[in-house]
Design a protein around this nucleic acid. Sequence first.
DNA 1: CCGACTTTGTGAATGCGTTCACGAACGCGT
DNA 2: ACGCGTTCGTGAACGCATTCACAAAGTCGG
Lengths: 223, 223
Amino acid sequence: MSEQGRFAAAERRRDIPEASVARLPVYLRALSGLAEAGRVTVSSEALAAAAGVNSAKVRKDLSHLGSYGTRGVGYEVDDLVHHISSALGLTQRWSVVLVGVGNLGHALAGYGGFASRGFRIAGLLDSDPGRVGEHVAGLTVRHIDDLAEVVRTGDVSIGVIATPAGAAQDVCDRLVAAGVTSILNFAPSVLTVPAGVDLRKVDLALELQILSFHEHRKSGVPA
Amino acid sequence: MSEQGRFAAAERRRDIPEASVARLPVYLRALSGLAEAGRVTVSSEALAAAAGVNSAKVRKDLSHLGSYGTRGVGYEVDDLVHHISSALGLTQRWSVVLVGVGNLGHALAGYGGFASRGFRIAGLLDSDPGRVGEHVAGLTVRHIDDLAEVVRTGDVSIGVIATPAGAAQDVCDRLVAAGVTSILNFAPSVLTVPAGVDLRKVDLALELQILSFHEHRKSGVPA
DNA sequence: CCGACTTTGTGAATGCGTTCACGAACGCGT
DNA sequence: ACGCGTTCGTGAACGCATTCACAAAGTCGG
């Protein structure tokens, strides 16, 4: 039965629906706030309010991690923080390499939200010789040709692309070749990666265009 | 019948599924590339490849805009650019106000992707008196108390929040009070807005945490 | 003008995610 | 010890999005 239990828990963690995974970080942040406010336990209802979703979703999402709630009471805040962190793999530090130290790259390098969640920037790289050697956020910018070495010595598994669109696929290929298995792309271009490599994108202009659509709709159809 | 036609078209544009709307900007970018490469027509298959989706999705998405393809041939590139731009409301310029001129705010202000898609930054605002007066991306930073005036005189309908988490809800409330009806939030906090105001968020740390989950899964379960 | 070929547009089938609704489990006061 | 109120965990229902698969509609060469 305990063998069964361990196996079931592992099985469970493996197939958390993607949509749930995307909400876990939000819960985590909400829980941090609650913990700071001194809350010891929290109901799915309260957590839902803090995370901006509804309580059924919270309960179903958390049920994918296991049964860590107490009926009639709710969830223990610290406990939940631990279990979510563990499910997301945030109990270990991940090393990240950031390619492209332009406007956005600077902002990302200086963004506190990465370090505070356990992500370590192992290197900043750029192809522009004029930028190499520059100091940003306590690190020295190195040339893109040093990528493989930085990845190897820094035990890097995640790459962040903040280059212009034209360079993105080439950088992506280099990252993959160097052994990076997860990529976060800020460049406005569609990238292709081999199977086994995870790719996510953040498109700043895209979000504004979606808002534009809704504005347009609102102004075009007043009532 | 023409009355019918106009109505049906308007009806059509009104209820494009959210998931389709989110892909239209991607098609638009792919089409720009194809146009520059001299392509006159494009099949759903080719466009799908350029946009990183499958062709059935492309056809269904485009069918929501109307029947603008020619069977046996494909879609006319220029034509499609026009129709998508029109559906997204990108044929008019939208004015945007950006609140929070820190690290990220600087990057957003300097990001070319906004201007090139028809978004005009009508003002940069910050609450820090030390930052007021600073020149960023050709604009002078003004104090947050000038928000209402900037929104009014600049005909602003979209607000971008790039402040620390603690200030985000307050700024959001002020934007709404000033008449902004769409908000793009980069601060890592859950915002609430009244009905009729559209809200989207971009969370930089969240994306990394999702990648962390997949890395964790990969390393934990080798095969 | 016709037949072969290409590609669209769209019903139907499928899959995934959200929401509902309720039984089971727990704390607490008496 | 026991009933009452609260809250979790989860099957079932629902709705939205994706994918399939094919008839309809066009092009083009001869």
